[in-house]
Amino acid sequence: MSESRIFLSSEANTHRSGGLPRVMWMILLAFAVMLPMVVNAADAIPPKGTYDGKDVLQPIEFPHDTHAKVNQINCMYCHTYARRSKVAGIPPTSKCMGCHTVIATDKPRIKKLTEYWEKGEPPKWKKVHDVPDFVHFTHEKHLRRFVFNADLPVENVSEVCGFCHGDVKNMTVANKRKPLNMGFCVRCHEANGGPSDCWKCHK
């Protein structure tokens, strides 16, 4: 704040810039030069911060562990929109039924799922991970940066998902483990050369 006043008062005429004091410049440059660097997955610096999320009661207690850990199903098999859109998406019920018309049909949770399918009504899941309305977050760009352009084998995508979603492989119903607040985002952007322009993320 005070810096900005000094800056302005030192300039009587906008068109005849005398430039900033050299020290100022260096401070500014430190913020300014943040060109995206080509990095390998190994170079990615995971964001810091933890959060102690509470348990959420879902219409069906979906076991992420069974799918992602026991059966080694890729995150993006179900959350298929993540690589194409800003939202990762909840898989369409038809995708669940693609397997569960034959697999584990006798289990109570699958019976419940089948009921939804037959009624033609998708389950109303409770949101666990969310960012405020004024935030523009896109899964697609983050996957491109940390997976596809970083030569990370797609099998290992859960490492990158885990940056923000925690170790989902070892959860049943997802639980919020990262703060997902601005500091969390910005620290990661700074560490990995992400953009710092406000309008990149705020809408």
């Binding site: 369409p92 019920t93 109303k124 899941w125 409770k126």
Partner: peptide, 10 residues
């Protein structure tokens, strides 16, 4: 968490 609903496509 758990306050808003999200509904998938069929």
């Amino acid at each position: 968490e758990g306050k808003e609903e999200v509904v998938s496509y069929m």
